[in-house]
Design a binder for these strands. Structure first.
Length: 857
RNA sequence: GCCGGAGUGGCGAAAUCGGUAUACGCACUAGACUCAAAAUCUAGCGAGGUCACACUCAUGUCGGUUCGAGUCCGACCUCCGGCACCA
């Protein structure tokens, strides 16, 4: 140990020590309790940014804490190394995506090591390596076998910028999740994973993780799944024997108000039923126009709503409840892929139908009234007192009481919905139904830099899965990438042309690759057994390590990665690979790291293009990794936005330097400190006070670690350091009991500092006379200090005294002062007397060890 | 529009249960050391009020419950995030 704190020297030394001693290596054979601490794996863009540093500092603090508490901690890292940026770099700059990716990984791995994150580097994985992606392909085949993956032609989201299909989750809000371009609709044949089959379970499963996941992530997933309970009703079509239109509604109670049936433009019945109609041409022209405008959702992205447009098909549907005849329309506001692709239009009770009816002068018929006293009275004669001629200014969408609804009049909406639904079922023209907004996950991409879809097309045998033994289907080298919107693999004859695994004749390979979110859906299972060549992982090993105790990452994956991985886990359970339902017990979503944009007062996420980025390497060079990490964890609670202010790092450096100086000053004297705690009576007031703070802070840091209140933890460490600074004994004059108290405080401080600033903590620990490091080779033990509640207890208290809830005085007491004595002392206090003299004391409330409140009148 | 979350000093923030509001840090001010600066150390730092006390006010606003509310309940305001023709 040098006299002065030189981070660069210390940090290099301990990084080497950790690597050489395997300090962070974990095995599934360990007898200690396990803890799986996971951070979202980075995309190897080439450079670590402050958001990464924050993410990994949070995870690392927890990993260190758990290790020091005696847990066997799995803390791995890897690379989400397939994906667009590599391909874009290839197209724009002609680089080789594999070489580009590998170089980036090398650079970023170096950066991570310089920050000193405690990963078990032996477990490092990268999605773009065949040893990894062959298992993506393996899962694909398993799912194909189970019918959980299928191919279908349908309108899909197309990013014109990246020239590929996107899933619904990746085009949420009408824009590409990565590049922000407005997404178009295209009709294409694509592979889908049947996530919708798990909609109910994904919703139900949230109960299990509710306590450990942030409310907003659960809410976002709940909304995304979009469960909706309603009724479907079949409307027969007049003059077309057997033909009928199915509609879905959550408000079957309003069905007597239906004045039209409205179909989505893509509805299959349109072509079928209009064959002989004179309106055929008009309707078809309209349908074409709607489809064309749907291709551009940039408007949608801007939050604009399209104007409702429709056309009457001339067809007539019959309301099975009222037998009324209503016209069948086609309109742009009805979506084909939700519910039944058709709705009953009830202008009086639905805003959208109302707007549509206004435009096309469709009748508005009120069938629900607000429940009021008057309505109660007329409920025997439901249609009495209704002014049907009165124009409604807008739709009435609340529940209420049915009117003008045949035999159902007078019923409350809630009851009518249940009863009418049952009625429809009994009569065979409908029934209760649950629909979900969640649609299947499109997993094929027209891109090069991904895992090839392991499927072969044969003229004789059709679609043939690649046999497991032939995996991996290798991504070819040296492919020219032009970015034309075609799957680049289609241009590689040696790749495309193959033989059919079934009949052996010439056949063609599928030229799409898998969504990178497939890679990230199961990567943390692979960490448990990263080199397995026979299976994605050994079942026993993942049974030991998973589920993940704590997952840490950005909120941006709330309904992408975090939904897919839950689905993937359930799928793996169903094919017998594991035995639980939810992969992640606790989730923490860290806040953004922002920096001010020069010349403004706007704080925005750090980014190179905005010019407000801060390079972690620079910060480490100037302040040291320990100070940077400490500052990041101290500056704000982990889930809040963190505004980058470099003056704050100075504070962190000052604190580390102060602690370092304490160690330097005391280290020699402490060698003479007694091993065991001396008699209680031998401690002086100052030593007792120091021990009190020490044990109070141990208790606080330990509790707050469980809640990840890391910023408060750092504050507690600073308080402990302040207490050490105020300790009047000096190394030269200290009595044995003083030395004991000082060592206890200093060692507790050093150990508790390790999760935040591990290098300097190791250095100080060594300097205090300990060998082998904090996680010590053969000497693996739980070094986290244990709080002694007795020692933490104050022996002299100042009890606040309130009069009518207002603070008026403080009286001295001890923890065992009896209540009677407290009451007496409070009532006798001079300052209190001023407020109670001449009044009647009604009662005195005493909260033991906390306060006295005198109630007077 | 619907669904979530949050409003506390100049700033980042703290306050398991309702029990001394503002811990810890940053910035700032003054002092010590120094020829000087930096670094370090010491002290101060919610607002009003006072020589100093006392006292009054203060956790977005208004009301309620309670001996006592940053914390619980009701209404409202503002900000942030998500979804968005989902029938």
């Amino acid at each position: 140990m040098d006299e002065k704190y030189f981070p660069e020297k210390i940090e290099e030394k301990w990084q080497r020590h950790w690597e050489a001693s395997g300090a962070f290596a974990a095995e599934a054979t360990d007898a200690r309790p396990k803890f799986y601490c996971l951070e979202m794996l980075p995309y190897p863009s080439g450079f670590l940014h402050m958001g990464h540093v924050r993410n990994y500092s949070i995870g690392d603090a927890l990993a260190w804490y758990k290790r020091l508490r005696g847990f066997n901690v799995l803390h791995p890292i890897g690379w989400d190394s397939f994906g667009q940026p590599a391909e874009q770099a290839a197209i724009k700059r002609g680089v080789n995506p594999r070489a580009w990716t590998e170089e980036n990984i090398v650079h970023m791995r170096g950066q991570l090591k310089r920050i000193g994150v405690s990963y078990d580097w032996r477990r490092e994985i990268a999605a773009h390596r065949p040893e990894y992606y062959r298992w993506d392909q393996w899962f694909f085949l398993k799912m194909l076998e189970q019918g959980l993956v299928y191919k279908k032609r349908s309108p899909v989201n197309w990013c014109p910028q990246e020239e590929t299909v996107l899933s619904n989750e990746q085009s949420s809000g009408g824009v590409c999740w990565r590049c922000g371009a407005g997404v178009e609709k295209r009709e294409l044949e694509q592979w889908f994973a049947r996530i919708s089959a798990y909609a109910e379970e994904l919703l139900e499963g949230m109960k299990e993780i509710e306590a450990g996941w942030p409310e907003r992530v659960l809410t976002m997933q709940r909304n995304w799944i979009g469960r909706s309970v309603g009724t479907y009703v079949d409307f027969p079509i007049k003059d077309h024997a057997g033909a009928q239109v199915r509609v879905f509604t959550t408000r079957v109670d309003t069905i007597y108000g239906a004045t039209a049936i409205v179909l989505a433009a893509e509805h299959p019945l349109i072509g079928e039923l209009l064959r002989d109609s004179s309106l055929k041409a008009d309707v078809e022209r309209f349908v074409e126009r709607v489809r064309a405008t749907r291709n551009i959702s940039a408007k949608l992205a801007a939050g604009e709503e399209e104007e409702k447009e429709g056309i009457n098909t001339g067809l007539i549907a019959i309301n099975p409840f009222s037998n009324e005849q209503v016209p069948v329309w086609v309109a742009n506001y009805v979506l084909m892929d939700y519910g039944a692709g058709a709705v009953m239009s009830v202008p009086a009770h639905d805003e959208r139908d109302f707007e549509f009816a206004q435009k096309y002068s469709l009748p508005v018929r009120r069938v629900i009234e607000r429940v009021s006293y008057e309505q109660e009275q007329i409920s025997h004669d439901p249609d009495a007192g209704l002014d049907q001629s009165a124009a409604m200014p807008h739709a009435f969408t609340d529940y209420g009481i049915l009117v003008n609804s045949g035999d159902w009049g007078g019923k409350l909406s809630e009851d009518a919905i249940t009863e009418m639904s049952r009625f429809a079922e009994e009569r065979g023209f409908g029934g209760g139904a649950v629909t979900y907004r969640l649609r299947d996950w499109g997993i094929s991409r027209q891109r090069f830099w991904g895992a090839p879809v392991p499927v072969v097309y044969c003229d004789g045998c059709g679609t043939v899965p690649v046999p497991e033994a032939d995996l991996p289907v290798l991504l070819p080298e040296n492919v020219e990438l032009t970015g034309t919107g075609q799957s680049p693999l289609a241009t590689v004859a040696e790749f495309v042309n193959t033989t059919c695994p079934k009949c052996g004749r010439a056949a063609r390979r599928d030229t799409d690759t898998l969504d990178t979110f497939v890679d990230s859906s199961w990567y943390f299972f692979r960490y448990c057994d990263p080199n397995n060549a026979d299976a994605p992982f050994d079942k026993e090993k993942i049974a030991y390590w998973t589920p993940v105790e704590q997952y840490i990452g950005g909120i941006d994956h709330a309904v992408m990665h975090l939904l897919y991985t839950r689905f993937w886990t359930k799928m793996m359970r169903d094919i017998g690979l594991l035995k639980f339902d939810e992969p992640v017990k606790r989730l923490m979503t860290q806040g953004m790291v922002t920096n001010i944009i020069e010349g403004t007062n706007e704080w925005k996420r750090m980014s190179k293009s905005r010019g407000n980025g801060v390079d972690p390497d620079d910060m480490v060079r100037i302040y040291g990794a320990d100070a940077v990490r400490l500052f990041i964890l101290f500056a704000a609670p982990p889930e809040n936005e963190l505004r980058w202010q470099e003056t704050g790092i100075d504070g962190a450096v000052r604190f580390l330097r102060r602690v370092y100086t304490f160690v330097w000053r005391w280290r020699d004297a402490l060698r003479d400190a007694p091993e065991a705690a001396p008699e209680a009576s031998s401690f002086g007031d100052a030593a007792r006070a120091l021990r009190r703070v020490t044990h109070q802070m141990i208790a606080r840091v330990t509790e707050d670690f469980e809640r990840l209140h890391l910023n408060v933890n750092v504050a507690a460490l600073m308080e402990l350091s302040n207490a050490l600074g105020e300790f009047p004994a000096t190394p030269e004059t200290a009595a044995p009991a003083d030395l004991f108290a000082a060592r206890e405080a200093l060692e507790s401080l050093v150990v508790m500092l390790a999760p935040f600033s591990p290098h300097v903590a190791e250095e100080m620990w060594e300097s205090l006379g300990h060998e082998g490091g904090l996680l010590g080779g053969d000497n693996r033990q739980a070094r986290w200090p244990v709080a002694d509640a007795e020692l933490a207890r104050k022996d002299e208290l100042e009890i606040p005294v309130q009069v009518n809830g207002k603070l008026r005085a403080r009286i001295p007491a001890t923890p065992d002062t009896p209540e009677d004595a407290l009451r007496e002392a409070a009532l006798a206090d001079e300052k209190v007397r001023v407020w109670i003299d001449g009044r009647t004391v009604v009662k005195v409330i005493i909260v033991p060890q906390r306060l006295v409140n005198i109630v007077v009148r």
